[in-house]
Computed example of a mutant assay.
Amino acid sequence: MSTPESTVSVPSGRSYEAMRAAFRRSIRLVHRPTVTGLENVPLTGPVIIASNHRSFVDSMYLSALSPRQVCFMAKEEYFTGKGPKGLASRTFFQAVGSFPVRRGSTADAVKALEDGEDILRQGKIFGIYPEGTRTRTGAIGTGKTGAAELAIRTGATIVPVGIMGTEDVMAVEQRFPRPATFTVRFGEPIPAPARQQPAGPQRRALTEQIMAAIAELVDDA
């Protein structure tokens, strides 16, 4: 049986890894972040990075600081702008491994999960914020079940991540990052369970496990 052709293009190769390494060095130089638990990220196979979300820079910084490239969703508008600004935005988000997602309808949400599944079936890392949006208070909210469903569907290992301080680097109302420090903690991997029926309670139970792990990482820091 042939493998279906991928619908999500993920940047790779020596030039991309060189650029990611340079970005990582610049982050460490400017922000002096505290990063722990990198050994918890499997070096091969599909992985879901499930993190809390405090700032616009979270996806870019997580992808740069992770041992492996992390592919995140980014809103479609970042890829469709016109003129030099639109080109710069599109080039940047493609370069950091993001892919466009349309937001608003149930069909859009389904398509986003399908793209995430595609990335995982390529044996890569897919990054997701189970809360679905950035927090303005720092509190950990209720998780949505998309990460759990993807793990069950693909067998991907889940690595919970706690981020603290990136809201000081770039708050919601800011246009550019500041040289503040921050902390990223990669937690103990959570293996994907085999599919059970009914599916709903299993997805919710796994989601609660993920959110509890994220909250513990944040509280411990």
Rank of each mutant, 00 (worst) to 15 (best):
V30F: 12
R153H: 08
T36K: 13
A156L: 02
K85G: 00
T34D: 13
R102P: 00
Q174M: 14
I214G: 02
T7A: 08
S55D: 08
N40L: 11
Y78N: 10
F93E: 03
R153G: 04
R153D: 11
F186T: 08
A95W: 10
I152P: 00
R195I: 06
A205R: 11
H53V: 00
Q174L: 09
A148M: 05
M60A: 15
R14S: 10
A221G: 15
D168R: 15
K75Y: 01
K82S: 13
T80Q: 09
T207R: 06
R185E: 07
G37D: 02
A221F: 07
P42M: 10
E114K: 13
G37N: 01
P189W: 08
R204S: 08
V10Y: 07
A180K: 14
L38T: 14
D168N: 15
H31Q: 04
G37I: 00
A213K: 07
R14H: 07
P189I: 02
P189Q: 02
G132P: 03
V47Q: 08
M164S: 13
A139G: 01
A199V: 11
E76C: 00
L113D: 03
V35W: 12
P42K: 07
P160Q: 09
S2Y: 03
R134V: 10
K144D: 11
E188L: 12
F23P: 00
T154R: 02
T145P: 10
Y61H: 11
D108A: 12
L120S: 03
R54A: 12
K85P: 00
E208R: 13
F93D: 04
K85S: 08
G165W: 02
A109H: 07
D219P: 00
D108Y: 07
E17W: 02
I163H: 06
Y78D: 02
S89A: 14
A180Y: 04
I128W: 00
D108P: 05
P160Y: 10
I48K: 09
M73H: 06
T154P: 03
A205K: 09
D58C: 07
R153N: 11
R178T: 13
R32T: 11
E149F: 13
H53Q: 04
G187Q: 04
P100Y: 07
L38E: 14
R54L: 15
K144T: 05
A88N: 04
K144G: 12
A151F: 07
Y16V: 03
T137G: 02
T133M: 12
I158W: 02
Q202W: 01
G37H: 00
E17K: 01
R24T: 11
G104S: 10
F186N: 10
I128L: 06
A199N: 03
E17F: 02
F72D: 07
A151N: 01
I210D: 06
E131S: 10
